[in-house]
């Protein structure tokens, strides 16, 4: 009996499936054939547009000029280096990332721990976790623009009730920036929380029971058990969040439109302005290439971190 099974397996391993024999394909050719659909799809939707973007960035191409595209080499990049608004918007983008990513991580962690508590009815907590995540970004931006409105906003109203005089949030770069960051943290921490919550539920209860027996306190348990075991989930959440933070557009666009002046505009808004409003596709492409490189760097750094951990 054992022998007969063995021979069957051997026969299958030795001979490729009937249909490949019919096509007379080698293993290598089969691999290529099977990978081709994915490779073609990726080329069409990722490689081609990115390559095209980089290509366009070397041209002077403005639809308002009425002139055909002209190769200008690195001129767009040189203009960028001399452009104060480019530096301002890039700095704003980096600052938003540095503030809102850790901010959303801390708030998201808190929410996840809260949602993981053994409540009798869990759906209200889980639902309220999901709502900010499910809300479109531009809606969130509009809603919070009204919250922070100096005359009709609920934030100033609450401040007034506590005897603090309300401020004109969007009249000051710092306050406007703070309002935008708060909104982004509110909007994105539920995404963090969802991923962390999934991570939390994979941690076996027995570990905490063992820690209880050994006399470890709640805080010790969090730092010795919860946090280390959550690391993979946190890294994944951070990668996604950082990349979307670098692309921040909707919330500042809806809340301040980049104002006052250009003090809260982000790189993505500046790209949008140059391409969609000014129709300067050459310069807009060069800006977009910079944003692409920025995202690439971040991804590479995170991937390194994951690899060294493993």
């Amino acid at each position: 009996m054992t022998t007969s099974t063995l021979t069957t397996t051997q026969r299958i391993e030795k001979e490729p499936p009937a249909w490949t024999r019919m096509l007379d394909l080698s293993d290598r050719a089969l691999a290529v054939l099977l990978l081709a659909p994915a490779a073609i799809l990726l080329s069409l939707i990722i490689v081609y547009p990115v390559a095209r973007l980089a290509y366009t960035s070397f041209f002077s191409l403005s639809l308002t000029s009425g002139l055909p595209a002209e190769f200008v080499g690195l001129e767009n990049y040189q203009l960028m280096i001399e452009d104060p608004v480019f530096w301002e918007t890039t700095w704003n983008t980096v600052l938003i990332t540095l503030i809102t990513v850790p901010g959303a991580l801390v708030v998201g962690m808190g929410l996840a721990l809260l949602a993981n508590l053994p409540f009798r009815t869990q759906w209200p907590v889980r639902l309220s976790l999901l709502i900010p995540w499910a809300l479109p970004l531009s809606f969130a931006g509009l809603i919070f623009a009204w919250f922070f409105h100096s005359e009709y906003g609920v934030v100033n109203d609450v401040l007034n009730r506590f005897g603090i005089e309300g401020v004109i949030w969007f009249n000051s770069p710092d306050l406007a920036f703070a309002a935008i960051c708060l909104t982004i943290i509110w909007k994105t921490s539920s995404f963090m929380a969802l991923i962390i919550l999934a991570g939390l539920q994979t941690i076996p209860r027995s570990l905490y029971e063992a820690a209880d027996v050994d006399g470890a306190g709640r805080l010790r348990q969090f730092f010795e058990i919860t946090l280390p075991l959550l690391k993979p989930a946190i890294v994944v959440a951070l990668i996604f969040r950082t990349i979307t933070a670098l692309q921040t557009f909707d919330i500042p666009y809806m809340m301040t439109g980049g104002g006052p002046g250009t003090s809260t505009a982000t790189l993505a808004m500046y790209i949008h302005q140059n391409t969609v409003s000014f129709l300067d596709l050459g310069y807009g492409s060069a800006l977009a290439v910079v944003m692409f490189l920025l995202s690439m760097c971040v991804t590479v750094v995170y991937l390194r971190i994951i690899r060294t951990k493993e």
């Binding site: 308002t64 000029s65 009425g66 969007f170 009249n171 000051s172 770069p173 980049g258 104002g259 006052p260 002046g261 250009t262 003090s263 302005q273 409003s277 000014f278 129709l279």
Partner: peptide, 23 residues
């Protein structure tokens, strides 16, 4: 001018910044 959008953006963001007291 065909590049009116850029002219407009320059003027309106500056007016906005001055009125907000940023500039």
């Amino acid at each position: 001018t065909p590049r009116y959008n850029e002219v407009s953006e320059t003027i309106r963001t500056t007016v906005n910044a001055v009125l907000a007291g940023v500039m």
